[in-house]
Design a protein around this nucleic acid. Structure first.
Length: 572
RNA sequence: GGGCCUGUAGCUCAAUUGGUUAGAGCAGAGCGCUCAUAACGCUUUGGUUGCGGGUUCAAGUCCUGCCGGGCCUACCA
């Protein structure tokens, strides 16, 4: 039995996320976690809300709530949605937790001890009306290059020229519109990533099996221009983790907080501490996952994230870990995803474009979304959601191939043999061939799941479902029944056992439907089919079952048209 | 501007890393079956691999030039 630590990128706190956020990190992470648990491994699957930074403060202000209350409320909302999607986190934490405060401050102190922090005085734009320093992006004005009047302080969206806030003509606050801006001097801490460049480079080079998407982004940052740059890890904000050196105050840094991208990945670790506390465990319980000097040397650590998150996970977070000089568990495999597009454009939280997670659950059960999103996961390139494709794929795969299989087997059995597993008959050549074929496919499915090849896993699983229909068609128990009822009994018994087998194999993708299949078969035997022939004997003659309700109702044309219409605009 | 990824059947994607005749699913066509959610199974149509050059015994795969799509470019997270 192996021990597997799994983290999903942390969803940001400022509102409800769309389906693109789900497919790029949490959902594939859940797939992997469920699979590994199903195989009997010890899994710790962690996720949390990422709660700090300017957008959280602004979202809270817009909602008319103090930021701490706003974050607490949104954490509950996101946690509830995650549960309803079946995301099986062992703990869903918060980057604002006391554990993360403590650990972030501790690590900053270690980095300072090791000479990896330097103080930098710089000039930043301060908005008197807003009472805050403005990140470059939150300053708008006219582009000196092209004259576009909504250019941002970091870059002009119109002509793509990179800018400094001070380049803008008639600069104003993007928050309040105020032009009462001034440049103030402020002091910040920088993490000397440049000093860790060679260590990081070596570390990345040791990860030969990582996707190109992942390593190419890291390499670019390491080698482009002057190489890896030092990075500011503090901000002039109220909401965040106060800058401290371990437990000591940090002279000159009063009133400042750590930058959200410094503390957010640390929450991966702090979340394990939250998990331990929530479950009444001691520190050793979480340290055995994260400290290689305290039992984590045999842990396999896998991270899931969208491609936009890669630089932080391959560079700045590892720089923090390495620079601390402490024996933290480093990531072993980093699985990154491209983006999911929506009907020819991008999903957009800020523009309210696409289907949001709460809306998705309002119109269909989680399994529909899980199946479609995972079987179309944007692994090799960006992928596209369209309502037509969604309707056709879900109806075919879930309703016709799997759902109807369950239905035809159970209903046929009920009408000919009653609601118990029928007795009699013995396997012949057809059954031997079926078992051999299934064994090959199940081993392939295991390989793909192990390798986190999400689409290939889905496609293999579907082929396993199809094999059941193929068998039924050629065995034709409805015909056999007339001449040789015992043989038909054996065929139906095998069909019923296939339902249980499918429930076990499919659980990582469609956990709710799997549970209903097991419930209908009136068994809680969800053991993995290492021996396929044996697994197909699990339900013995005489075992009672019941015909389940329709497993997956089909999406009608009327529904699809309604949703197309309803989700064509922006979310209010 | 710079860097990276990408373009394969009407649609969504494969192709064991340069190796026979480029494969699946869906959609389309035909046949079969009647247990089942008008479901299932079998057969089948469909490709100048974006375009043009080049390297090689051999190119979807490598090089090069165009054309298209996307991501990143360090203070949004």
């Amino acid at each position: 039995m192996a021990r597997i630590l799994i983290t999903s990128a942390l969803p940001y706190i400022n509102g409800i996320k769309h389906l693109g956020n789900l497919v790029g990190s949490q959902l594939p992470a859940d797939l992997f976690a469920r699979y590994m648990r199903g195989r009997g491994h010890e899994v710790l699957f962690l996720c949390a809300t990422d709660e700090h930074g300017t957008p959280a403060e602004l979202a809270a202000a817009k909602a008319g709530q103090p930021v701490a209350e706003y974050c607490a409320r949104m954490h509950e909302v996101q946690g509830d949605i995650a549960r309803r999607f079946g995301l099986s986190f062992d703990h869903f934490g918060r980057s604002s937790s006391k554990q993360n405060h403590r650990l972030t401050q501790h690590l900053a102190g270690k980095l300072a001890e090791n000479g990896l922090i330097r103080e930098v005085s710089e000039e930043q734009v301060y908005s008197n009306a807003d009472g805050r320093f403005l990140p470059d992006r939150y300053i708008e004005g006219t582009c000196p290059n092209c004259g576009y009047d909504k250019a941002r302080g970091d870059q002009c969206e119109n002509c793509t020229k990179q800018l400094d806030p001070t380049d803008l003509i008639d600069p104003r606050s993007a928050i309040s519109g105020s032009t009462d801006l001034e440049v103030r001097e402020t002091k910040h801490l920088f993490l000397r990533q440049s000093a860790l460049k060679d260590d990081l480079d070596k570390w990345i080079d040791s990860k030969a099996d990582w996707p190109i998407l992942t390593t190419s982004i890291a390499k670019k940052w390491l080698h482009d221009g002057d190489g890896l740059q030092d990075r500011g890890i503090t901000r002039d904000l109220d909401w965040g983790i106060p800058v401290k050196r371990g437990t000591e105050d940090w002279p000159g840094m009063e009133g400042k907080v750590f930058y959200v991208w410094f503390d957010a990945p640390i929450e991966y670790i702090a979340c394990a501490a939250e998990w331990a506390e929530a479950n009444g465990l001691d520190d050793a319980a979480w340290e055995r996952w994260w400290r290689t000097d305290k039992g984590a040397e045999d842990v396999r650590y896998v991270q899931f994230m969208g491609k936009d998150n890669v630089p932080f996970h391959t560079l700045s977070f590892p720089a923090t870990m390495i620079g601390s000089g402490e024996p933290w568990k480093m990531v072993d495999h980093l699985k990154s995803f491209n983006y999911l597009n929506f009907e020819g454009g991008q999903f957009s939280t800020s523009q309210g474009r696409g289907v949001f997670q709460d809306q998705a659950l309002d119109i269909l059960p989680a399994d529909y979304w899980r199946w479609w999103l995972l079987s179309h996961a944007p692994e090799s390139s960006d992928s596209e959601f369209t309502w037509e494709n969604f309707q056709v794929a879900v109806n075919k795969d879930l309703a016709d191939v799997l759902g109807n299989f369950v239905s035809r087997v159970t209903k046929f059995c009920r009408s000919k043999f009653g609601e118990t597993v029928p007795q009699g008959g013995a396997h012949g050549d057809a059954e031997t061939a079926l078992i051999a074929g299934l064994t090959t496919r199940i081993r392939a499915y295991e390989r793909h799941m192990q390798d986190m090849e999400v689409r290939k896993s889905a496609s293999e699983l579907r082929a396993i479902w199809v094999a059941g229909n193929e068998y039924l068609q050629s065995a034709a128990p409805w015909a056999t029944f007339k001449e040789d009822p015992e043989k038909a009994a054996m065929q139906v018994r095998l069909g019923l056992n296939l339902i249980r087998l499918y429930a076990v194999l499919s659980a990582p993708f469609i956990p709710d439907a799997s549970a209903r299949m097991l419930a209908a078969m009136q068994t809680d035997d969800s053991g993995w089919p290492d021996d396929v022939a044996g697994a197909l004997e699990a339900l013995q003659p005489g075992h009672a079952f019941e015909v389940p309700d329709v497993l997956f109702a089909k999406i009608t044309d009327a529904q699809r048209e309604d949703w197309q219409e309803r989700f064509s605009g922006r979310r209010a």
